[in-house]
Amino acid sequence: RRASGPLYEMLNPSQMTQEQRCQSFSVANLEKKEFYSPLYPNNYPNNTECILRLEAEHGYVIRVDFRDYFHLEPSNKCEFDVLEVRDGAHGYSDLMGRFCGDNFPPIITSKDRYLWLKFISDDTIEYRGFRAVFSYIENKALDRPYIEPCRYYLHGEQGKISSEDVEEERLEYSRQHNHPIDCTWVVTVKARRRIFMSFKKFKLEKPNECDMNYIDIFEEQTDLKNRVKHYCGSVADPFATNGTILQFRYFAIPSALNTKFVAWFTAFRERTSEGENSQCNDEEYDCDDARCIDISLRCNNVTNCQHEYDEEGCVVSIGTGDGEGGNDRA
């Protein structure tokens, strides 16, 4: 067992940051290939939420085994304290199990090279926790080559997210190896801004069942509890984030790769009811709904205001039909 460090001797859990509480869980001991409940070998603290992502090299899977003891607050559905394990790199990956009480979880083996784990404790009873060891095992059944994760990074006053961003090489990989497309666009805007997003095109290829072909929207956290939108079927309504980060995830099985979508994001500032930020400034356009956008977005043939006021009174020029092109101010 690990000895208590100076941090634990100087601070009690109520004085620690969430990062300090989570260190023994969220930062795995790669030399020993172990991870532990928060503050191990002491009882874990209450009101704590920690995330760990384990990653193996391509061609290997991860196996996790719990040793010595496993003791979290017991409950019928693990609704108080829980260890959640998902088969993948993210909080939206397939659930492998939710574990609590004093029974050891089974040996856990990933299907691919990632495992995502979350520890949560509520505001009452604290228990001993656990020690877990992990190992990397060659995946001899894997018959597809390595491909980089599908991620795109966007920033600025506005931008477009499109199914056409996905490279043909990646689509062909999906077809050839019967592997789903799973792409994420990460949008970041300036501090004190929020993000408005609207779709210009949304057509999911059949099968358009909600677990085979869909778009998910997250903000900073990508677990299902923090999912903002789940688009499937035929309708995609506009929305606005609460913060400066938007994560747009597109998932499709190989038979649904003809899905087409175009979405535009816009950075906006929300006017306050009073004070110096209660009005849009000279470099902003007032959407007349308590939102200010960059003045350059006026008459650009893209709906940047939720009520489309930024395109009123504009002279329409030829565009592409998906929100691109240019307008001139009348």
Results as ranks from 00 to 15, higher is better:
R175S: 00
Y231E: 10
D322T: 15
N76F: 07
E284C: 08
A132G: 12
P180L: 08
S234Y: 15
T222H: 13
I120S: 10
N226A: 10
C292S: 06
Y153R: 06
C183N: 03
G233V: 08
S121L: 12
F196K: 02
A240F: 04
R194P: 00
T303I: 05
V186D: 07
D216K: 14
G129V: 08
N46A: 12
R227P: 04
Y285W: 14
L117I: 14
K229S: 08
E79L: 11
R128P: 02
A191N: 01
Y8F: 10
G59V: 03
Q279V: 03
S110V: 04
V186A: 06
Y136Q: 13
D310P: 02
N43L: 14
E274W: 14
Y173D: 06
L39T: 02
E324W: 14
R131G: 08
T222G: 05
G129C: 09
R271M: 11
H230W: 11
V315K: 10
N301S: 13
D223W: 13
K260F: 10
N178Y: 10
Y114H: 13
A3M: 06
F66Y: 06
T184M: 14
G325V: 14
N300K: 03
E167C: 07
H71N: 12
P106Q: 07
F202M: 14
A290G: 00
F134I: 08
I137E: 15
V235K: 13
T259M: 06
A141V: 12
A252P: 04
T222D: 15
E57N: 09
N301D: 08
R21C: 01
R98H: 05
F265P: 11
R291S: 13
N12A: 05
C210F: 08
C299W: 00
G5D: 07
Y250W: 11
T48D: 02
D122K: 05
I253L: 08
E157P: 06
Y127P: 00
P145L: 12
E126C: 14
P38G: 04
V85Y: 05
R21I: 04
L154W: 07
G159R: 06
K229Y: 02
N301C: 02
M197C: 12
R131D: 10
D112Y: 10
F119K: 10
E79I: 06
A191Y: 01
H179K: 12
L154A: 09
N327Q: 08
I295S: 09
K260Q: 14
D68W: 04
P45D: 07
Y127K: 15
R98A: 09
I253K: 10
N46I: 09
E308F: 09
A236W: 06
G233Y: 13
H71P: 01
R128C: 01
F130T: 07
E31H: 04
E284H: 09
S24F: 05
N43H: 13
E55T: 15
E157R: 12
S273Q: 11
K32A: 03
I120R: 13
L39H: 05
L171Q: 04
F66R: 03
A267I: 02
G325Q: 14
S296E: 12
K160Q: 14
R1I: 10
I181H: 01
V262A: 15
A290I: 00
